[in-house]
Computed example of a mutant assay.
Amino acid sequence: MNRQTRLQALSEFLKAQRAKVSPESAGLTSGARRRTPGLRREEVAQLAGVSPTWYTWLEQGRDIKVSSFVLDAVATVLQLNADERKYVYSLALEAGPTSGLPPEEQPEISPSLQKILQELKHCPTIISDRRCQIVGWNEAASHVFLDFEQLPPEERNMIRLLFTRKEFQRLAVNWEHFASGFLAIFRAYYGQYVEDEWYERFLETMRGVHPEFQTLWEQSRVSSSPEVLIEFRHAKAGKMLFHLTSLQVHGSADLRCSIYTPVSGTTTEAKLKQLMERQAVRET
């Protein structure tokens, strides 16, 4: 993304984060009723030890001189986590790796990673790249989500599927929470690969086609490895509970392994086994 696009992304993120911080949590008194939630700009500036004008310019996306020391102070006031700090630093300081593999080159799944996919027989598992493009999955994932093999490779983008496929929207009991987890990961990549213009083109397309995307994008946090409890209402199996664990795969390709582990003490694993067994019988 070019410099102006980065600064605009930084502006939007700072505004959204400021709105989430209550005066009380920042050590201030709320005082008179506020027209908008969160801290005021001058309060952020005061707590961070910078001038109100400088912080206003930063939040407006102006091209000003920024140091990591001052950014750290602002990040502390806005109560950013480690991933969100990295995101802000990447946008403000233009720090981050280059775009890496061209879009037409799909990362290869190593034999060892393919073996892991097979061994996680009753844990739906998806392998995705830094653009959230699905490049690998196991049989369990096909039963819980959809048969990715039936989709053209260019359509196997997890973010796009969340907003375009009714299967995903009906599956998660709290779809917005489900989608926000993936957007948090996507935002982490967006800040990390600041030189890759693909992200801005993708965001522009999603905003234009799916109006609800922009709202969730503005509200999304930044997380490279969220762990969440997800409740699904599967069309054939009914209620299913999974713990989602997202892991980085070390290697030349920036891959992520998303593992859905059936919650212990529930009937989720038994239901998944029945789904897979019935499919195996139909195929014989």
Score class of each variant (00 low, 15 high):
N2C: 06
N2P: 07
T5V: 08
S22W: 12
A26Y: 04
L28K: 13
T29W: 03
R35F: 04
P37C: 03
L39Y: 05
R40L: 10
E42K: 06
E42P: 05
V44H: 09
L47Q: 11
S51W: 13
S51R: 06
T53E: 15
W54I: 04
Q60F: 05
G61Q: 04
D63Q: 12
D72M: 07
A75N: 08
L78A: 08
Q79S: 13
A82R: 12
E84P: 00
R85P: 12
Y87S: 11
V88K: 01
L91D: 08
A92P: 00
A92T: 13
E94Y: 10
P97R: 15
T98K: 13
G100Y: 02
P103Q: 09
I109H: 12
L113S: 06
Q114P: 02
K115N: 12
T125C: 03
T125M: 07
R130V: 01
R130P: 00
V135K: 08
W137Q: 01
W137H: 03
S142L: 07
F145V: 05
L146C: 09
L146T: 04
D147M: 08
D147G: 06
D147P: 01
E149G: 12
Q150A: 10
P152V: 13
E154Y: 11
E154C: 01
E154L: 06
L162V: 00
K166W: 02
E167D: 15
E167P: 06
Q169S: 09
R170P: 00
V173E: 10
A179W: 04
G181P: 03
F186N: 06
F186K: 01
R187W: 03
A188V: 12
Y189A: 12
Q192L: 15
E197F: 04
Y199W: 02
R207T: 08
P211E: 11
L216I: 08
W217G: 02
V222H: 07
E227D: 11
V228Q: 14
F232W: 13
A237E: 03
A237P: 08
L241I: 00
L244W: 03
T245K: 13
T245A: 10
G251S: 05
S258I: 03
S258H: 15
I259R: 07
V263C: 10
L272R: 09
L272Q: 07
L275K: 05
R282M: 12
R282C: 01
E283H: 11
